[in-house]
Design a binder for these strands. Sequence first.
DNA 1: GATGGTAATGCAACTGAGTTGCATTACCGC
DNA 2: GCGGTAATGCAACTCAGTTGCATTACCATC
Lengths: 153, 153
Amino acid sequence: MDAPTAAAKRLKEAGLRPTRFRERTLEALWATDAALSHKDLVSRLPDLDRVTIFRCIKQLRKSSLLHKVRGTDGVSRFVANRTSGSSCPGNHPHFFCLSCGALTCLEGLRLPHLELPTGFEVRGKQFLVEGICPGCAQGRATAAGPDEKETSS
Amino acid sequence: MDAPTAAAKRLKEAGLRPTRFRERTLEALWATDAALSHKDLVSRLPDLDRVTIFRCIKQLRKSSLLHKVRGTDGVSRFVANRTSGSSCPGNHPHFFCLSCGALTCLEGLRLPHLELPTGFEVRGKQFLVEGICPGCAQGRATAAGPDEKETSS
DNA sequence: GATGGTAATGCAACTGAGTTGCATTACCGC
DNA sequence: GCGGTAATGCAACTCAGTTGCATTACCATC
């Protein structure tokens, strides 16, 4: 009665022991579109030790099951790599909402090319856009809306 | 015998009290092209309290005399804004050297434009390129090269 | 030049992210 | 079922950054 979870399958594919804790960590990440911080994970998995979660993240990252993004607040957040094969950790920009703190992958977009001066050997790129996400922008508009001139432009 | 330092002048222009400590902090930042971490500043200004340096940085940042950049290691680094008027803190990409940890402003380059999906309200952008800086790349090349062509060009 | 208010500094203690060491427990092949 | 190895839990630690409070320096005013 194993009922081999999708998470368990993913873990096995990656060569990791599919323990219940790893499955749950992975599932917690799969359950959301936003990037979760370590703190978020701790609150979603209250019966797991925080150190275990750190170590779990590290393993998953090493196996390219998730990638790390840092918000402008300096806190690392983690996003599961959906597609099993292509786990390119940094091939898309990220958006950090200054209002709700959510960090989302802009997976539809490609990282723009940058022509560096000669001598620089590029290993990776990170493009972080900060601002207000659609959800918060809408919330603000409706909240401010009633009597104030609601045309936000 | 004030000998009003350039740093003191800059501080006054920005509306800050030109104390000796602030002058020295600013001068330490001016003395290098790379971005300095708080730790770097502490080691360059050993007789200053670390908290004072944190507060000094915060003041200078508020007055747009420097801008903050975070390396992929998550540590904040600070760069003085040379030009007095245009203190745009994030209008150029940064390069983080994985070998020596130096973080340099690529001031000659412009941030590439990114077309976001509708609904996102952009407030700022950060483009961080990581890799090996020219200095380290050369050091490695010479270290690896048997004959050590010492022509530094 | 003395004086006083305010801002700046120094010190101690704290928070929060992330790590390390070590003992214990669970997983998996046999 | 059994044993080795990997995973987990706990405690303690490092390091960046912050806060509170007492003390000191700066600057304007007299």
